[in-house]
Amino acid sequence: MSDATACTDTLARLMKALDSRSDAELARALGISPQSVSGARRRGEVPPAWVQLCAEKTGCNAHWLFFGQGPMFLPPHLTDGTGSADGETGADMITIPLVEARLSAGTGSLEVNGGTEGGHAFRGDFLRRKGNPRRMVLMRVSGDSMVPEIFDNDLVLLDQGQTEITPGRLYAVGFEDAIYIKRIDMLPGKIILRSVNPAYAPVTLDLRGDCAEQFRVIGRVLWSGREYR
């Protein structure tokens, strides 16, 4: 399903829950401008805050509002009053796919296909606070340039919808045929990729030349975790 289709379906469920017959009525019910709704349709992305507000106002199941899965309303004993399942009795869980690609935190590794090799479940309320769960993926890290913050073979959670750079934040970035995890700083016309491991010097990319076509922000890193051997 495309982002545009998923967005249209989510907006339709919001309208049903809020008894709205038009985008203008939906905007009034959410306390936002009609332009915000039209903007969401154009981008193909519904802000998680709209779903959370609708769940709070109507008691609807937030997972149903977001994805059309499960009942529109959960039984009272399974909710915490916001339309989300309670963590002790069957939490609202969302499985994020683990993609068949390896991010490099060192010398770089080639990106492979977009297939998946399973996934891991996270609490839905956690993911929605962080961004858009539909744009999130998990990837494994290769290399030691981010040690001790991120280790070789750690998992990282990426939101591919967050590609606008906030200086100092952690991102997965692509340059030429390699993918890296770095903290990003910015200067006029330049990007600085910083490692945590002092053995790796910062890398400065001049985006006013050919580098601009070879550099891309894949997504912001939201979480990392590891399995102990």
Rank of each mutant, 00 (worst) to 15 (best):
R13A: 01
R13L: 00
L14M: 05
L18D: 04
L18R: 11
L18V: 13
D19N: 14
D19R: 14
S20F: 12
S20K: 11
R21M: 12
S22C: 02
D23A: 11
D23N: 15
D23M: 04
A24N: 04
E25A: 15
R28V: 11
L30S: 09
I32C: 12
I32T: 11
S36M: 15
S38L: 10
A40G: 01
A40Q: 06
A40I: 03
A40R: 02
R41C: 10
R42C: 09
R43C: 07
G44I: 07
G44T: 08
E45I: 13
P47I: 10
P47V: 10
A49W: 12
V51I: 15
V51K: 05
Q52E: 13
L53K: 15
C54T: 15
E56G: 11
T58S: 08
T58G: 10
C60D: 05
C60R: 05
C60Y: 05
C60F: 07
A62S: 11
A62C: 10
H63F: 13
W64E: 03
W64F: 07
F66M: 14
F67G: 03
G68A: 14
G68Y: 12
Q69Y: 08
G70V: 07
P75I: 10
P75K: 09
L78N: 02
L78T: 04
T79M: 11
T82G: 02
T82P: 01
T82A: 09
G83I: 01
G83Y: 00
S84I: 10
A85S: 14
G87S: 02
G87I: 05
E88K: 13
E88R: 14
G90D: 01
A91Y: 06
A91T: 06
M93L: 13
M93Y: 03
I94V: 01
I94L: 00
T95I: 06
I96Q: 02
L98R: 07
L98K: 02
A101K: 03
A101V: 02
R102F: 09
L103K: 03
S104V: 07
S104I: 12
T107K: 10
G108F: 05
G108P: 07
G108M: 06
S109H: 13
S109N: 13
L110N: 09
L110E: 12
L110G: 09
G114L: 04
G115R: 08
T116I: 05
E117Q: 06
G118S: 06
H120F: 12
H120I: 14
A121H: 04
A121E: 09
A121I: 04
R123N: 03
R123L: 10
G124Q: 10
D125F: 04
D125H: 08
L127D: 05
R129E: 02
K130V: 13
K130N: 12
G131V: 00
